[in-house]
Nucleic acid binder design. Structure first.
Length: 856
RNA sequence: GGGCGGUUAGCUCAGUUGGUAGAGCACCGGCUUUACACGCCGGCUGCCACAGGUUCGAGUCCUGUACCGCCCACCA
């Protein structure tokens, strides 16, 4: 027994994070079979930034669950990944080192970035660029790791991975090649959602709607001489040169007679057909829409369904492509006029072209009235600044649509915490409208491990990709040459060309179980951890990370990647808005941990229900800190006199253990169901009852005032209860519980056994209902006496001359057994326990002493 | 437009299978009580969003409404 004189929380984080590391407390025991393993698909935080309170919140939830399962005897597989792949890192590295990536350059092994970034960015090869990304992110990762350790995450720090690391690249490429060989990955030249600033394709999952001001422009499309014009209302008049048809609903009486006829586009004189299609909404605009290639995804649907020609004008950079009117596909009834009008639009951005064409249409009289301002939702890339365009380009896809039903079944197979989050995934799957586009025209990502033969005419033969052997992975086709070719044959007729694109960041992130679990690199490990037990993550990335992980696992292994999805909510600031950096309201986590203690912050985090958005609340952290301090002091008191020990015979002692045992039983079930917040709440509640009532009731007896047997019973009960309570708290408050544990127990509390109800119920094995009732009654009577003293504004040590308790007969016997404890704690001189209908307590305090009266 | 949550004390939130409304914080009052003043004891605070329905009985179950938030949607 080694209890400090003045126990304190200060310094516990540092002390224990170091000892845990030195002792390997959280090391994964990979000798254990799958059944004994609890594996966690930890979310890899994005490294290109800093951790915020939201991270602390959700990662604490996972850690609590990890600690619980560890104490339940599982070997916990709890790795940490770093998501350093993708655009955010790319941008940061560009600015930090003053470089830009030029994938056409060869790798320079001796390249060193300038000490200070120059005004003019230096061009570097993709491998060099990736080296710089790795270098910068390594720094961030160190900072993250120390914060996580300080927070007390019980991660095995011997198992970390990075999403741009060689292993992750290998897994990404390998998985891709296997999908390719199974025909589940394919490339296609097709209209694709396109960000004109990043100049890359984006996937459906990366879209977001933003409300934008726009305007309906009422435009006349001419029919034959003498026929009334057809009026279309469009928000994108600049796409009139790309118009390939008009479309109205098949049942729309206004346009029925026109189906099959043609109209002429204003300014450009292009003859386009009027066609029927169910998707046309008679309520919108004038009820007839122009189909352009391509203004939005509906255009693509119509274009496909009606087999229309292409007249594409938006270029990858968002400007209008110069067009030679009169050439094939650009026929016009008035070529000179079309050219004259179009030349004023060519090379303008869509927005500028819109302003210009409005002028032209107004001048020509084809614009009816003024544009009518509206607000409408427009699709954006979630990281982008300008509306998405649709550009035809060659992209890689993973087949998704044909697996929708299977994926819906998977969604139902997952155990969701909370359960209602399942609807999010089903909703998303039901709304999918195309296969997953995984190629990005970016640099810092995993390259597609594919080359293409260069034909004698210099063009690439995309239909016969050259793939490397799996043992060569990872490769970078921009610098590596395929087997059987020399580097000199790159981009030469008869030679090869590397695929220039990289994978969507989710194409790698969707493989985190494979990456962390050592798929193909360490099959023994993988077999012990996969499929994993839990995916913890936030609800905003169900459609991306969760969905794509389920898809990849389904395609590769025909199984779920994990059996549980534990969804955490967001942190809301006091205005009930999501906390974010842009709002400037993010508090740095380290400052919080230092001020309130890691246990205090964890207490706040663990109070948040699964899936529930939770208010950022410093008050709760203070409460947590006080709880931790209370644990120190109460433990010190309990451990102050551990002898004599012996049979737990006193009814209230057995009652206490019954209460703790019931709590253990409930807590075990709750945390098995990921209801950690409830466990904390209930444990805390019983702990305060223990401190405020039980400890006080047995104080006198354990000092030996009522003989050695009574003291032995009290001491034994106290130690048993303390041991169990500490272990119940351990997943939540790892530092303070470990500190107290170290005073009197060998080993770490975090590798000790989760308490079992049987430990508390004693050798008899059963609950002691009478004991529990007795303790409740004694606490109630004690409360009444305290109230009386408080009402009379007298000190608690004021003696009670006489107390009369009335209660039903059955309870009377029980309370009688606690008489000595009750009289001792409340200083009752004369306690009468009588039979009554209900419990009443009449308290008569001793007369105030003379000195007290004088002072009053 | 479709879907999912939420609405309980001034604030943050519990409230298991229907059975007399709870905790913490805040506020007010009191107390040096040999584990803890980073403490202890006590007190105040509610048309449980609204309207119906089921029931002996509804915060809890059903229907509808309002507001808040989120997700999704083909946005001409």
């Amino acid at each position: 027994m080694n209890v400090p004189e003045k126990p304190a929380l200060e310094g516990l984080e540092k002390k224990w994070m170091e000892r845990w590391a030195a002792g390997g407390v959280y090391r994964f025991d990979r000798s254990r079979p799958r059944a004994d393993v609890y594996s966690i698909d930890t979310p890899p935080p994005t490294v290109s930034g800093s951790l915020h309170v939201g991270h602390v919140f959700s990662y604490t939830h996972t850690d609590v669950v990890a600690r619980f399962h560890r104490m339940r005897g599982k070997a916990v597989f709890y790795p940490m990944g770093w998501d350093d792949n993708g655009l955010p890192t790319e941008r940061r590295v560009q600015n930090f080192y003053g470089v830009r990536c030029d994938p056409s350059l060869p790798y320079d092994p001796d390249f060193q970035p300038p000490a200070k970034p120059d005004k003019h960015a230096i061009s570097v090869s993709r491998p060099n660029f990736i080296e710089l990304c790795a270098r910068l992110t390594a720094e961030d990762e160190k900072a993250f790791e120390s914060l996580w350790k300080y927070l007390g995450l019980s991660v095995d720090w011997g198992m970390t991975y990075a999403t741009i690391g060689r292993h992750a690249q290998k897994v990404s490429q390998l998985s891709f090649l296997r999908l390719l060989s199974k025909g589940l990955a394919y490339q296609l030249e097709a209209p694709t959602l396109w960000d004109v600033d990043f100049r890359t394709a984006v996937a459906q999952a990366e879209l977001e709607d933003r409300e934008q001001p726009g305007a309906y422009h009422r435009i006349a499309f001419a029919r034959g001489v003498g026929d009334a014009a057809v009026y279309v209302e469009t928000t994108r008049p600049e796409l009139i040169p790309a118009c390939v048809a008009l479309v109205a609903h098949p049942d729309d009486e206004r346009y029925k007679p026109l189906f099959g006829t043609e109209v002429t586009t204003p300014l450009f004189g292009v003859r386009v057909p009027i066609r029927p299609h169910e998707l046309a909404d008679p309520e919108k605009g004038s009820g007839i829409a122009m189909i352009c290639t391509f203004g939005d995804v509906t255009d693509v649907v119509w274009w496909r369904a009606l087999s229309l020609p292409v007249r594409a004008i938006i270029q990858p950079n968002g400007t209008l492509r110069p067009v030679q009117w009169g050439s094939e596909g650009w026929e016009s009834t008035d070529v000179a006029r079309a050219q004259e009008a179009y030349d004023q639009l060519a090379n303008l951005s869509a927005l500028k072209a819109r302003t210009k064409i409005v002028e032209l249409l107004r001048a020509s009289g084809d614009l009816v009235g003024d544009p009518r301002p509206i607000t409408h939702a427009v699709k954006f890339y979630e990281k982008g600044d300008r509306p998405l365009e649709i550009v035809t380009s060659r992209q890689w896809f993973i087949k998704t649509m044909m697996f929708r039903d299977a994926l819906l079944a998977r969604a139902r197979e997952i155990r969701w915490h909370p359960a209602y989050m399942q609807a999010r995934l089903e909703n998303w799957i039901n709304g999918l409208n195309g296969d997953w586009c995984i190629s990005r025209q970016r640099f810092f990502g995993v390259p597609f491990p594919v080359w293409y033969p260069v034909l004698p005419n210099g063009s690439r033969d995309y239909s016969n990709p050259i793939v490397p052997g799996e043992d060569r992975l990872p490769i970078d086709p921009s610098t590596d040459a395929p087997d059987g070719y020399t580097a000199a044959q790159r981009d030469q007729p008869g030679g090869f060309s590397g695929d220039p694109d990289v994978m969507d960041t989710w194409a790698t992130s969707s493989l985190t179980p494979q990456i962390a679990g050592g798929w193909t690199a360490d099959d023994d490990l993988f077999a012990r951890v996969f499929p994993m037990d839990v995916r913890p993550q936030a609800h905003d990335i169900i459609r991306t990370w969760l969905f794509s992980t389920v898809l990849r696992s389904h395609l590769e292994f025909d199984t779920l990647p994990w059996s549980n999805a534990a969804i955490s909510g967001w942190i809301l600031d006091p205005d009930r808005k999501k906390m974010s950096k842009s709002k400037g309201n993010v508090v740095t986590p380290m400052a919080l941990l230092e001020e309130h203690g890691s246990d205090g912050v964890r207490y706040w985090a663990a109070s948040g229900r699964p899936g529930a958005d939770t208010a950022f609340d410093v008050g709760q952290m203070k409460v947590g800190r006080r709880l931790a301090i209370k644990l120190l002091n109460a433990s010190k008191f309990v451990l102050a006199s551990a002898e004599p020990r012996g049979d737990i015979s006193a009814p209230i002692d057995r009652g206490l253990l019954t209460m703790v045992g019931r709590l253990v039983r409930e807590a075990t079930a709750d945390v098995d169901d990921y209801n950690y917040a409830r466990v904390l709440e209930r444990t805390e509640s019983l702990f305060w009852f223990f401190c405020d009532n039980y400890l006080e009731l047995v104080k006198s007896r354990r000092y030996g005032d009522h003989g050695p047997e009574g003291a032995a019973s009290a001491n034994s009960a106290l130690l048993t209860a303390l041991s169990a309570l500490l272990r119940l708290f351990a997943p939540f408050l790892p530092f303070v519980t470990e500190e107290v544990w170290s005073w009197w127990q060998p080993g770490s509390i975090h590798t000790s056994a989760w308490p079992a109800a049987e430990e508390l119920f004693g050798p008899a094995g059963g609950e002691n209902e009478d004991g529990a009732r007795t303790l409740e009654l004694a606490a109630t009577v004690l409360g009444e006496i305290r109230r009386k003293k408080s009402e009379e504004q007298r000190p608690m040590k004021t003696p009670v001359a006489r107390a009369v308790v009335q209660l039903p007969d059955s309870d009377r016997q029980l309370l009688e057994s606690a008489r000595a404890d009750l009289c001792a704690v409340a200083l009752v001189q004369d306690l009468l326990i009588e039979t009554g209908e209900t419990l009443t307590v009449d308290v008569q305090l001793a007369a105030p002493e003379a000195s007290t009266q004088e002072r009053a």
